[in-house]
Amino acid sequence: MGMKFTFVIEGGNFSKAGTASSEVKKILKQLNVDPKIIKRTVVSLYEAEVNVVAHAFEGNMNVEIFPDKIVVRIEDKGPGIPDIDMAMQIGFSTATPEVREMGFGAGMGLPNIKKNSDRMNISSTINVGTQLEIVNYLK
């Protein structure tokens, strides 16, 4: 059994984007996780959190920390992703012009997550939501 934490992510609220990732970072630091692994995990969690803020209505970040791995599930209620292969391509984005103006929506989110996680699983249902699982091994 791992230690479990859950954080709520508000869709559309950019002023809070990064709060959940920041909380997880604090926990990983307290647990003396290897800084390199914390850095990678933080990048992937922040991108996942921003995706929920930018695209979904609401979501949760469920973190489970085991002796040998960190498992994070980010689940949202939202429009879903019609074509995941497309969404995984660098530069592809469905973000609004307002979101792009802030410097988000460059189509780098999911590729950043893939690069900074040891395992990544994503599934999505149109008009229901998206589930993303990120696993980073501690050894």
Binding site: F14, A17, K25, G103
Partner: peptide, 14 residues
Amino acid sequence: TLQTHKNIMAIASL
């Protein structure tokens, strides 16, 4: 950067 909104601090902190 030329970005001035609060999210730059989230990035800087993380």
